[in-house]
Design a protein around this nucleic acid. Structure first.
Lengths: 299, 299
DNA sequence: CCATATGTCTGACGCTAGTCAGAGATATGG
DNA sequence: CCATATCTCTGACTAGCGTCAGACATATGG
């Protein structure tokens, strides 16, 4: 079976089994929609506008579901203190109890999937589930070229600098490091690639085009998104841009504490070379010759 | 995170992503229910009663959906030749065209999951999907003790004998082999364990209780259900019964051509011993001493 | 203070999915 | 041939999910 056929077959069986799982909620008077609301409100409560955004619900529909839960005495809504247009919804103690029941049902449904299996198969299932989860998250990550001055890009760069400051033995002061002003990372001078997961920035990387080579800079992946192979995807994308621009060589420098980054570069054909600039925070300099063969495009 | 939490987290992300996948159908005028019908009718057509059974639909509802598809000119229904009460439904050429379109959309949706990933991750995702599919099928298999005279049990035994006849170099004639009359495999003389997947028999195995030992017999797994670890589950279940009955020893014999069975037995602590009976079709005799420690119960 | 935007709510409406009862046609065993 | 069962279909009904327009209250920038 080819990959596509396998994905479809996987979908069939998973929706069937997992669909059966969701029926754990059923049998109770409450509708699935109302249950989702209870889950999302959670122990801490939430603003209604956030609730709507997270579950992607219509405002009228949300309102109606909330009235229903309110009538059952499971939730309480109050105006938000900082803006009385928005309302804040929280569980009452009855609501918390109900949520606990739902959680127990949900746990039981999940357990019923594991229970029939002997120990070794159970372990194999869980490990495969972990892999799928990781890779599905990864495939939901979108890469796009953005203006390095945009809020999302600035957000990434701030997190990046914070992390450097925390990890470098000497701390990190951007002012002492080689600069990379936004203009230099904007086409056609360069490319700033932003990675987003469900519209949240989770990584970045930039290519600066010099006359004779491309320079990789600002490679960063949020801790929450590590292990998804995101560094690879960003790097490959930047390489694509370099090839498009017919740059024969890629260069970059990095700090000795950034070991994942170093192994990422080595894995992708970068070789360590003598220092080719005076970046004070760098301990290792890498180069990679680019053939002009283009690799197949992936989003 | 514990196993249950991991299953729930897996469910969340999969329903989210796979749900998004199913929207591939949407945007077209047809409802999801009608699409499922088209898929299930398929190129060869099908009897309506089978269609209902497979999709677990109400007869009234099915009828209405079919009328709708008929009005669109996608299907044609005719009385079944062998019983004019039942009707047979087949796709018209327009219907086949529509099904092809749906398949293309579905393929595209599946591909959109794979496309973003670099090659190595894509392979990892597909392999994990295969694992999950196999193990979910496995966890959907139910074991139960049934009367060895019941239709499902007889069905399994027939398939079992057929397979022995096909695989043994000498063929197989049950009359020449040591008998195992139903009464001897019925509690308390013995136990006949039947494995079913979605109500279809896919395997069996029996324990016959002698005074000083238990005898494993009739171990069989349908070809369609191999690789799911089903043999292990049946064997473990039979061992449980033997322990319950405080039998200190398990015995069995097998033919040299049944190599998977032999490795199953060896994997589970059976050791080859000299022939302890005169079964004409056996080449190998196995024993396993049972400790009375009970393993945790699994369905 | 005014114009405009934002957030919430209500009422009216529509579609999908599904259930239930019963009618009518056809098989099947005795 | 008759009683009974099986299969399909229609009509009547319900619940859940969701959309849309507009009302109302409250913020916000000028």
């Amino acid at each position: 079976m080819d990959g596509i056929g396998q994905v479809r077959s996987f979908n069939r069986i998973v929706t069937q089994q997992v669909g059966a799982l969701a029926e754990g909620f059923l049998g109770r008077t409450r509708s699935l929609g109302a249950c989702r609301l209870l889950f999302e409100i959670g122990a801490d409560g939430i603003e209604i506008r956030q609730l709507r955004a997270r579950l992607a619900l219509d405002s009228g529909y949300t309102s109606r579901l909330l009235r229903q839960l309110e009538a059952e005495g499971l939730i309480r809504t109050t105006p938000s203190p900082r803006d009385t247009r928005v309302r804040f919804v929280a569980l009452t103690s009855a609501g918390r109890k109900e949520l606990a029941v739902l959680n127990r049902l949900s746990d039981k449904a999940a357990a019923s999937l594991l229970d029939p299996l002997p120990e070794t198969q159970r372990a194999a299932l869980l490990s495969a589930m972990g892999t799928i989860e990781r890779l599905l998250r990864s495939s939901a990550v979108r890469l796009s070229v953005v203006n390095p001055d945009s809020p999302a890009a600035r957000y990434c760069l701030e997190r990046y600098f914070e992390e450097l400051a925390a990890r470098f033995e000497s701390g990190f002061d951007p002012a002492l490091s080689r600069p990379a002003p936004p203009a230099e990372l904007t086409p056609p001078q360069g490319y700033f690639v932003l990675a987003t997961l469900y519209d949240e920035p989770v990584g970045c990387g930039a290519l600066k085009c010099h006359a004779a080579y491309g320079e990789i800079r600002r490679m960063w992946v949020a801790t929450s998104a590590r292990g998804l192979g995101l560094g690879t995807r960003i790097l490959l994308r930047l390489e694509d841009f370099a090839r498009e621009r017919r740059l024969p060589l890629l260069r970059l420098e990095t700090n000795k504490t950034l070991t994942e980054a170093q192994s990422l570069y080595r894995r992708h054909g970068f070789r360590e070379v003598p220092a080719f600039n005076d970046e004070p925070y760098a301990h290792h300099w890498f180069e990679k010759a680019l053939s002009s063969v283009k690799r197949p495009l992936r989003s």
